[in-house]
Write a protein that binds this DNA or RNA. Sequence first.
RNA 1: GGAGAGAUGGCCGAGUAGGCUGAAGGCGGUCGCCUGCUAAGCGACUGUACGGGGAUAAAACCUGUACCGAGGGUUCGAAUCCCUCUCUCUCCGCCA
Length: 428
Amino acid sequence: MLDLKLIRSNPETVKKAMEARGMDPSSVDEVLELDKERRALLAEVEGLKNTRNRVSEEIARLKKEGEDAQDKILEMREVSDTIKEKDEVIRNLEGKINKRLLNIPNIFHESVPVGTCDRDNAEIRRWGEPPSFDFPFKAHWEIGENLDIIDLERAGKVAGARFAFYKGLGARLERALVNFMLDLHTGEHGYTEVFPPFLVCSDSMVGTGQLPKFCEDMFKVEGTDFYLIPTAEVPVTNLYREEIIPEEQLPIKHTAYSACFRAEAGAHGRDTRGLIRQHQFNKVELVKFAHPDNSYEELESLTADAERVLQLLELPYRVVVLCSGDLGFCSAKTYDLEVWMPSSGTYREISSCSNFEDYQARRANIRFKPKKGGKPRFVHTLNGSGVAVGRTVAAILENFQQEDGSVIVPKVLQPYMGGISKIEKKKG
RNA sequence: GGAGAGAUGGCCGAGUAGGCUGAAGGCGGUCGCCUGCUAAGCGACUGUACGGGGAUAAAACCUGUACCGAGGGUUCGAAUCCCUCUCUCUCCGCCA
């Protein structure tokens, strides 16, 4: 969430940012109005509390000296009642302010292009060449089915739509990718691996911004306060919730494998076939806790770390910077990595790398203690997929398919596949 | 699931017949003194949040209020009493 002080001093900036995201900025004025009310009342109540404290001390003194304090006690009884009433009103106002604050998005970075939808995203760079096939190429779900390594039909029976069984070398490929990515990020990019809980409490979901606004996108375990994580970003960012980190530890870099669970409400009819849009998918995530002074450099290197995965896998991709209208609610700036998908003839999102600045840190209360002294400050949080595993499988199947229906395994993956260099149809 | 113990400041740890205790003491940290250097020693300072003042934004500074796991209650007044909840630890049972 944004600093209330920032909204007080620069309401127009906040409103403009909301408008550029295509949102109604009226809650800004509501917040200001409620805040004004609250502060007036607060001054009043604090004055009353001050008298109560003073008189109470006097009562103690009088009693010690054996004098009568009954008058003052009665007087203070009334004061206390008034305090109780006004406190209640203040609590109420604070609740309203907070609710609005949690629903005001982050202010985006000046380098973010203004736009309304994904068509306004700006391409930054491309890597690799999309393959040209001299035979009729297939979509990954067909390839996977033919090779008997992906079973969507039975997954539909066992779980429902948007689930998948991976089988044989398909399951192995998924596992190989997870291990390859984790090894790369821990071994060469300096991230510390964590293996997080896949269920978290609602406080964590508020901390990273999924709640309260996006609860319909999440799976909740009925009768509990548990939510299935939509990404490892949630548990890993919340690792340091309510904590003060020593400055010299920054940046903290974590990588984590997790399954991710998404309700995909409102995505009916989109990407209904294949592995692109699943209720459950695997992802290796990168999370950074950075110093505010250099968080944008950290965003560049985090993006580069994610790109390295695709480069080593030899998958053609491009990097786009999301425009204001397509930017995530909490993000100040986001690069999407889009991998070439022959079946759709376009680049498709496979990673999303964002700098949230202090927006999540303020919600989750993650701070660092400056070395030179002074008050704790909020860290900047960043994260990116490094990368989405299911979509990587889809990309590998499609980009490396051969005319005979087999699929070449990228070189870096072969050690993780027991030396297998090609996935072929089993004979018989 | 059953039984018990506990939750205090960055950390450790006092404080329950309710009243200058935001909180003793220690550690850690910062600054100053001392020392040829290091160590030791001495002195001072050292929580957070939200208001108000500080000529305006920020800071120093001054001031108020709140905070001793969370939320309620009793009381003129609660870290201290009562209720509810959460978490941690120990033992038993059960379980991958």
